[in-house]
């Protein structure tokens, strides 16, 4: 049983308003049956310092990634994980997290690979909820395990592999990293470890639209008109374009994938999760370093 949509007027402007909820809506529906709130953060201990009452934690690294192969977990493991978290296939899953929701958007994208039907993001994420003085708790949630079916991932629609990106060159590509990563000056964001890639630069032809441009100061998404000006205007994307987005490991670009797909309604956007840690390390990949012509 899925929950009603948030009819907030800001959200109503977006192409798929059913994919977002406001903090006010969440506060009102927190105890509704059929809802599981998922916190997904960069810092693995942040949830333990306090979380939205009843929320469960999903860690992108230890739970959504396979521990051997660089890939997401299998259908069996995902079903098991969902069961443990008390999530059924018909559960409304609402994600929130730190850093303007970038890890929450990543978790939502992985859930989308498994085709979980009702996934939503809390506009503004953890910081907005906290800033509004809404309740946080360190109490562990008590959820009964659920039955979740084994559903194979569909990587074809919203995930791009390296060879597909290679074949995609010449078509729209958005590099959502910081300008210094894009030009190859840094191999990671400023103040982050300079490791992970042997070459700096970007995939040829990629436009640089840092992911955070889609977010307001409080972590919420910019309005539809602002997003349209950013991606349609400055970056020149058309709604029917076949678009590939990438960053370093695919987390920041999940945020952009969400904005393009669910807020602007572009229906052919794929996230290249191999991103720069694959491209910048792979042998004989073409690389550009010049500044974005846009």
């Amino acid at each position: 049983m899925t929950l009603p949509h948030d009819t907030d007027p800001k959200l109503a402007e977006y192409a798929h308003p059913e994919r977002l909820v406001t903090t006010a809506w969440l506060a009102e529906h927190l105890d509704d049956p059929g809802l599981v709130v998922v916190e997904s953060d960069e810092d693995i201990l942040l949830y333990e310092t306090g979380h939205i009452p009843g929320a469960v934690k999903v860690d992108w690294h230890t739970e959504l990634n396979d521990s051997m192969t660089r890939d997401y977990v299998s259908a069996e493991r995902f079903a098991q994980l969902m069961g443990e978290k008390g999530i059924g296939r018909d559960t409304t899953v609402v994600f929130y997290g730190d850093k303007s929701n970038w890890w929450a958007a990543y978790a939502l994208w992985v859930f989308s690979l498994f085709g979980h039907p009702d996934v939503r993001l809390v506009d503004g994420g953890r910081s907005k909820w906290e800033a509004e003085g809404r309740p946080m708790t360190t109490d562990a949630p008590s959820r009964s395990p659920a039955d979740y079916p084994v559903v194979e991932r569909d990587d074809s629609r919203i995930r791009a592999y390296r060879d597909e990106v290679l074949a995609h060159l010449g078509q729209p590509l958005i590099d959502v990293r910081s300008p210094d990563e894009y030009t190859g000056k840094l191999l990671h964001m400023a103040n982050y470890p300079q490791e992970g890639a042997l070459r700096g630069g970007h995939i040829p032809g990629a436009r640089n639209v840092p992911w955070a441009k889609a977010a307001n100061e409080d972590g919420s998404f910019k309005s539809r008109a602002e997003l349209q000006a950013l991606y349609g205007g400055e970056a020149g994307l058309q709604p029917d374009d076949d678009v590939v987005v990438y960053c370093r490991i695919g987390e920041r670009s999940s945020h952009t994938w969400f904005a393009l797909t669910h807020l602007l309604g572009y229906d052919k956007v794929r996230n290249y999760d191999g991103s720069w840690t694959e491209w910048g390390n792979a042998v004989r990949m073409p690389i550009e370093r010049e500044v974005d012509p846009a």
Partner: peptide, 9 residues
């Protein structure tokens, strides 16, 4: 920062 408990740990 307080928002980085792993690092603080």
């Amino acid at each position: 920062p307080l928002e980085a408990p792993t690092t603080r740990g």
